[in-house]
Nucleic acid binder design. Structure first.
Lengths: 191, 191
DNA sequence: ATAAGAAATTAACCATGGTTATTTTTTTCC
DNA sequence: GGAAAAAAATAACCATGGTTAATTTCTTAT
């Protein structure tokens, strides 16, 4: 149950085992089913989650269309960052693409966790910084790379995950329509 | 000479006048001419500048084309952030669009300035955070807004500056070609 | 196992914006 | 002030990708 998050944290910061186990006591488990809306636009996200299994897509509404903006894989933390740091309602939907299991920590207990060990706060900052880096990287590649390259890059970055994601989400993520992604795939298949 | 930067800083942090003046002693002035390359791709940026006057465009090379990625106006700090924080060569050109005057601070003296007054470091972080916020905002609007809306937004945000920028740079900034921007402008003129 | 539904592909049509070249306007500089 | 250069607008053509609808393939559930 905790082995994955234990490994995740130990890779990033040095925290005494006791403190780790203590923090786990404040956590809860939540199971979700494929297709379930874990968070809806307008909801207040009250937790920080760690995905033990499953796959989540975040979507935004653009001109009535639901467009994927990122994916969260197992062994990653998951939350609505803007909501955690300044209590804003989500402007994203978070939809489960598979059944899954998630450890959740109520955001109210966060200060408590930080008080157990200062390093938990360091970890938290690290996760935020990682998110910002990803955002900037995506922005950069969205501006400078062709759709074809970005599709290939996507497959390469998530070789095990991309065939678990419906193509319509990948299309939206790349900023194109499903028929257009089909054309790209057809072109690539000919090589 | 220092009145503008003095005002800029005082708006953001509380620093004793003595400390401010002390820091200015480490600065230098640099004048540049319209069309001058202040920084070239591959250069190492060794300074932090404050634009007293003039207008600078940053460009990146995408498939051989020089595309504007942002503009720096008077009364703003100017540097190559990635280079200041981790000593990387610039992957942007910085070109003066007008004659101008810039206060410059060698990046090596930065620790010295910080040692005069801790608040200088706070100011530095603030400027960085502001840059990140702008980047995220641009990324968001680039993904969700039409070219037309973004053009109008650009004019509105920089009403005094947009007619000092050649349209070819604005076109690149919006991700389109000059003829296409012409079409947009024609369409808008009809309203 | 099969029917119903969802996802992906394909096809045909069309609009938008890139490209290139030409003309007009503006700016620069002697 | 006028010639040369640069920038912007315009026009014509074309390619790419959006749209819609039809078809095929794949999933899901009973």
């Amino acid at each position: 149950m905790y082995s994955q998050v234990r490994e995740y944290i130990k890779k990033r910061v040095l925290i005494a085992d006791d403190d780790l186990e203590k923090s786990f006591q404040y956590s809860d488990v939540r199971y979700f089913k494929k297709g379930e809306y874990i968070l809806r636009i307008g909801d207040y996200c009250r937790f920080i989650g760690f995905l033990n299994s499953g796959l989540i897509v975040n979507t935004v509404l653009i001109e009535g269309k639901e467009i994927a903006c990122n994916f969260i894989f197992e062994n990653c933390f998951f939350t609505y960052t803007e909501g955690i740091t300044n209590n804003a309602p989500s402007h994203k939907n978070s939809i489960a693409l598979e059944d899954g299991e998630m450890l959740v920590l109520d955001k109210e207990t966060l200060p408590l966790i930080f008080s157990i060990n200062q390093k938990f706060e360091t970890l938290f900052s690290q996760i935020l910084a990682e998110e910002v880096r990803n955002l900037l990287h995506n922005e950069e590649s969205g501006r400078t790379q062709s759709v074809e390259k970005r599709y290939l890059q996507f497959i390469e970055t998530f070789p095990d995950a991309f065939n678990r994601i419906p193509l319509k989400y990948i299309a939206g993520y790349l900023g194109i329509e499903p028929p257009s992604l089909s054309r790209v795939r057809k072109r690539l298949a000919g090589k």
